Simulated assay, not measured.
Amino acid sequence: MRVTVTAPNSAPAIAIEHLQVRRGGRQVLQDISLTVPRGSITGLLGPSGCGKTTLMRCMVGTQLVESGSVRVLGEDAGSPGLRRRVGYVTQAPSIYDDLTVTDNVAYFGALYGCSYDDVETAIAAVGLSSHAGNRGNQLSGGQRTRASLACALVADPELLVLDEPTVGLDPVLRADLWEQFHELARGGRTLIVSSHVMDEAEHCDKLLLMREGRLLAQLSPDELRSDTGESSLENAFLALIRMGEEL
């Protein structure tokens, strides 16, 4: 995969201040402030319905916000200059069932003027070269997720926002995907990966822990254990919730 990492930049990949989002008269995100360091894997974790997807939509500029600011790679989220610099993989695979893997990735690559070599490189990066000629409806669930990731990778984005990419996958496929995520981070990319499974926090450099539209904490897995005195990350998260309720 091509890597277009520029000189080191101490500014965060994402900086959010006092973000508020209301939908259908309901407050979905409440006073969210956070930063995401560059060249890292940040896990966005919390139970289903806590606001993770809404927060990610704010990061990629597809969500209307009530107030607050969202800066991504030094620009306002959703700015035209970010279209090639940010890749977004939604929960549902974003591929066409009647197109092959190659044609799906080439379609997205054409939006950014990518070459055929770029398409092949993106497919190889997710381990689908041997299935490049298969149509979307011939792929397994894990392969469809990988094909969607290739569609996001073809433009060589600096930031990847992945919404529950491992949901429904068996443990072996989950492990393979996480190894790919770490390889991308080692190449200088920044990844935001959401999940409602706490054991996936172990794979992350930093964690953003959410509940009921609020950000409970932003810290590393080791810091979470240290702050709560729990060795299990799931128990540590529950302890963090109890500590918040007692305040």
Rank of each mutant, 00 (worst) to 15 (best):
L128I: 01
K206W: 12
R85D: 12
V65Y: 00
Q180A: 12
E245D: 12
E234N: 12
V172S: 05
V72R: 02
G61L: 04
V3I: 07
S130F: 02
V21E: 03
D170C: 10
T121E: 11
E66A: 02
E246P: 10
R242C: 12
E164A: 07
S94H: 08
R84H: 13
C151N: 03
G133V: 06
G43M: 02
R83K: 14
E179Q: 15
A185Y: 12
L191Y: 14
A239M: 14
A124L: 03
R189S: 06
V86E: 06
L209H: 08
N104E: 06
Q30M: 12
A147D: 00
A7D: 05
H182P: 05
G244V: 10
N235K: 12
D117N: 14
E120D: 14
L82G: 08
Y112C: 03
Q27G: 08
L99D: 06
L238R: 14
I32F: 00
F237C: 06
P157E: 11
D222Q: 15
Q143L: 01
L184H: 10
W178E: 02
G61F: 01
L149C: 08
T54L: 04
L159D: 06
C204R: 10
E17W: 07
T62V: 14
G68V: 06
A122T: 01
N137V: 09
Q180L: 15
D205H: 15
Y96T: 04
L82E: 03
L19V: 00
P80M: 07
L162P: 02
V5I: 13
I123T: 07
V5H: 10
G244H: 13
A155Q: 15
V60N: 04
R38V: 01
P165T: 02
E230N: 13
R57A: 07
I14F: 00
H196A: 07
G87E: 05
L29P: 06
L177H: 01
L55V: 02
